[in-house]
Simulated scan of single mutants.
Amino acid sequence: MSTPTFTLSQIVAALNEGIEMAADESGCNITDERFTWPYAATLVHLDNPDAPWTHVAVRHDAHRQISREGGEEPVSEDGRTFTRDQVSAAVNWAVDEATDFRRLGACADDIDNFVVNAVLTLLDDPDASFDDVVTECYGEGPDRVSSWLADAV
């Protein structure tokens, strides 16, 4: 059996939807830095895992400006695909590094962890709902997880 791979468009769609889901349930704005830094860092890390943080900062600034204007960052497909493990490593790294950068050494919180779980669930099932992510990743009901996200703000 072959390992499934994902295009950059599929990854960006999962990132956007996972972040939107986390923002909706937590009450945060989707343009909040808690979401824009991990978004940018994930894409930079997928492109080059050894890229310096300054590359993430440039990507972040461009992404944040586009987001504030209500637009979507264009996706430039180059034929590369990524395994779920590669995406998982990139999203986890991005959340951890962005959390450390934004909150000066703090650890990821419930919202950050939900973003990772949502993105990976949405890669496997692009039509997954909040309830589907909760069922797949948590041993609690949707109301309980939603309250964790709201409390993490």
Rank of each mutant, 00 (worst) to 15 (best):
A13Y: 01
A98W: 02
R59Q: 12
R34N: 11
F101A: 14
C137E: 13
V133P: 06
A89Y: 06
A13D: 15
D131K: 09
N48Q: 11
A14S: 10
I19W: 01
A94E: 12
D110F: 12
W37S: 00
P38T: 08
S146V: 01
F130S: 01
S9E: 14
T99S: 12
V58L: 11
V116D: 03
V44P: 12
V91L: 11
G139W: 03
P38R: 10
D109W: 12
F35M: 07
T31W: 02
A94Q: 12
F101G: 01
E97V: 06
D125N: 15
V87M: 07
D24W: 00
V75S: 10
L149H: 00
A152S: 10
G141P: 04
P126W: 11
T31D: 05
V153M: 01
I66A: 06
T5R: 13
V87K: 02
T36P: 04
G70E: 08
W37R: 09
A118W: 11
D131Y: 05
P4C: 05
D109L: 15
F101H: 14
W53G: 02
W93D: 12
M1P: 10
F130K: 04
R144P: 00
N92A: 11
D127Q: 15
A118N: 07
E20R: 15
N113S: 14
V87A: 06
P4H: 11
W37F: 15
R102V: 14
C28Q: 07
D100Q: 12
R68L: 13
L46R: 04
S2M: 14
Q10T: 07
A98L: 03
P74R: 04
E97W: 02
A62V: 09
V115C: 15
Q10L: 05
E25K: 09
V134A: 07
A108W: 11
R59D: 07
E97L: 01
C137N: 11
L46A: 09
A13Q: 08
R102F: 15
Q65H: 04
V119N: 04
V58M: 08
L15S: 05
W148G: 00
E69Q: 10
V133K: 11
R59V: 02
A57F: 01
A41D: 15
P142S: 15
T83W: 00
L43R: 05
M1E: 14
A22H: 07
D124T: 09
G71T: 07
F114R: 12
D78E: 10
D110I: 01
V44T: 15
D61I: 00
T54D: 15
N16F: 00
V145R: 07
F130R: 04
G79R: 13
T81D: 04
E25R: 07
R80I: 10
A40P: 10
E72W: 00
T81Y: 04
E72N: 10
Y39I: 03
T135E: 14
A94Y: 09
T83E: 05
L43D: 06
A57C: 03
E136F: 02
I111Q: 09
P142E: 14
G27R: 03
S2H: 12
F35H: 03
P126F: 13
V75R: 10
A108Y: 11
R34E: 14
E17F: 00
V87Y: 04
A40W: 12
D85C: 00
P74G: 03
G18A: 06
D50K: 13
S9C: 01
V75G: 09
S88H: 09
